[in-house]
């Protein structure tokens, strides 16, 4: 751990996290402190548990049969796996963007307004406001402002993904979890999503899974290297990409394995 990291406030702290799909253990003793307002990238070979880890952070794995968590995930110092956690409120605080863009088969407006409506916003003016703000934040407003009532399935892949980001932002989360948000996109759309992440940095604590080393080095402040369900190394992106401590990390980053 470097000094700069120690000075930052921790938003998400995982301590000795073990995770099981039935009898199969997918995460082993994962302990990291995700700093507030920074972008943290999760990298590692396929199947090493990045998505699994990400999904423990908003308890998305709860809906999978037979899964089990040991250890703690503290968000703002509070264990989200304690019995008095309201999962619905927890998930409202944590936005999630998936690898495959998944607009609802509804209008663009209704997609963005879905979350606020669920959380009790009824007034049209207020909804209009939230929708416009969210779309502007995700740099999609200019492209869709004249077609708010069109079905969101008609947008391009890149637009759909930014729509999904806007939809997540519309409920005003503190944390944004992104699982390979650009892996299905062409380079131009990828660049837009990356710009967007840079924009959102500071306002949100962002955890992003990516297979793209350049992307990790471009967008993130911190990088965690996962291997076979364990954290091998966690440090500032600069350290990880220039002089990692572990040989495995270096091998992976330079493409020698994985």
């Amino acid at each position: 751990m470097t000094e700069s990291q120690a000075r930052l406030e921790t938003k998400i702290k995982t301590t000795s996290l073990n995770f099981y799909y039935g009898a199969v253990q997918a995460l082993f003793d994962v302990s990291i402190d995700v700093p507030a307002g920074q972008v943290t990238a999760l990298i590692g070979p396929s199947g090493c548990g990045k998505s699994t880890y990400l999904r423990t952070l908003n308890r998305m794995n709860d809906i999978i049969d037979g899964t089990r968590v040991e250890g703690q995930v503290l968000i703002d110092g509070k264990n989200i796996y304690s019995h008095d956690t309201d999962v619905v409120l927890l998930r409202k605080r944590i936005g999630m963007v998936f690898q495959k863009s998944t607009p609802f088969p509804k209008s663009i407006f209704d997609n963005i307004a879905f979350g606020p409506r669920i959380h009790g916003v009824r007034k049209r003016a207020e909804l209009n406001d939230i929708v416009e703000r969210s779309l502007k934040r995700s740099a999609l407003w200019d492209e869709v402002k004249d077609r708010m009532n069109e079905n969101a399935m008609g947008l391009s892949g890149g637009q759909q993904q930014r729509l999904c980001i806007a939809r997540a932002l519309a409920v005003d989360p503190e944390i944004l979890l992104m699982d390979e948000p650009a892996s299905a996109l062409d380079p131009r759309s990828t660049a837009k999503v990356e710009d967007l992440i840079a924009e959102l940095r500071g306002s949100y604590t962002i955890v992003i899974v990516t297979h793209n080393m350049q992307q990790a080095s471009r967008v993130s402040d911190y990088t965690a290297f996962f291997f076979e369900g364990r954290i091998i190394e966690f440090d500032t992106t600069q350290v990880i990409f220039t002089h990692p401590e572990e040989k495995q990390t270096e091998d992976y980053i330079t493409g020698r394995f994985g």
């Binding site: 809906i63 619905v88 409202k92 999630m96 998944t102 609802f104 879905f114 669920i118 997540a168």
Partner: peptide, 26 residues
Amino acid sequence: PRSLKEVSLALGAPYYLTVLRVVLPA
């Protein structure tokens, strides 16, 4: 698709609203 349901849950929609507003309309 399960992904659609997950999106709704991830937005903080309770389960019953996810069924009523996402799964059934789809």
